[in-house]
């Protein structure tokens, strides 16, 4: 049995975070590892929060409870902070630094926290926190829809998964529609590069692979 790892993914309806979740789960299975994955999307298509999970290492329940997530993948900055109670102490956080303002914020009634506050809030619990402009990098890769692959590429580069970026590259080619493969491969690379650059900047080697 491989090491237990519980990944909590959160985003906003329409971002495609469930496609990314399925891609990640299939990659884990193709590596011959035990995996279960889950998604809750009752009314998500109407702009609500979408939460999903990928659990490695022999779990049977697809749910992740409060204080149980080893990794948080946040596809939107505000939702990353909302997922804070799910983090286990010492968790890894990889999040978009970009916002999709909820209706109250768009209309000037509510105020979204500043990115710095989000970093601080998550950093108080997590061992390591990375923020990437995934939509900007997705556009750079050729399609904003590939933003999710930026986050997945970054996840691989951190070394918290028991496999490297090659496995994800193989999945993109195997499971995504032919017309979007190129942009998603490029997006994976941009995600990896961003993590490497961040690691060098903080003069720190990425954590070792399991």
């Amino acid at each position: 049995m491989s090491a237990a790892l519980r990944i909590f993914l959160t985003g906003v309806g329409g971002q495609g975070s469930l496609t990314a979740t399925a891609l990640l789960a299939r990659t884990v299975m193709d590596q011959g590892l035990e995996v279960v994955s889950g998604e809750i999307h009752g009314m998500a298509q109407r702009g609500g929060v979408v939460e999903s999970t990928v659990l490695l290492g022999g779990f049977r329940s697809p749910a992740i409870g409060r204080g149980e997530a080893d990794v948080l993948l946040g596809f939107e900055a505000l939702e990353s902070l909302r997922a804070l109670p799910y983090l286990a102490p010492g968790a890894f956080v990889l999040s978009s630094s970009e916002f999709i303002p909820p209706p109250g914020v768009s209309m000037g009634r509510d105020k979204a926290p500043e990115l710095e506050d989000i970093k601080k809030g998550l950093g108080a619990v997590a061992a390591k926190v990375w923020f990437l402009p995934i939509n900007a990098l997705g556009r750079k890769a050729g399609a904003v829809q590939s933003a999710n692959s930026v986050l997945l590429g970054a996840l691989c580069a951190t070394g918290v998964l028991p496999f490297g970026p090659e496995a994800l590259r193989a999945s993109v080619k195997k499971y995504l529609p032919a017309k979007s493969v190129e942009a998603n491969l490029r997006a994976l690379e941009l995600g990896e590069e961003a993590i490497r650059a961040a690691a060098e900047k903080s003069a720190e080697r990425p954590p070792k692979t399991h």
Binding site: G47, G65, P113, A124
Partner: peptide, 18 residues
């Protein structure tokens, strides 16, 4: 074991379905 490692952030703007 039900306790979270951190409490929910207070007063985050909601994102109800719409």
């Amino acid at each position: 074991p039900l306790a979270a490692s951190a409490p929910a952030h207070p007063a985050l703007p909601g994102r109800p379905p719409n």
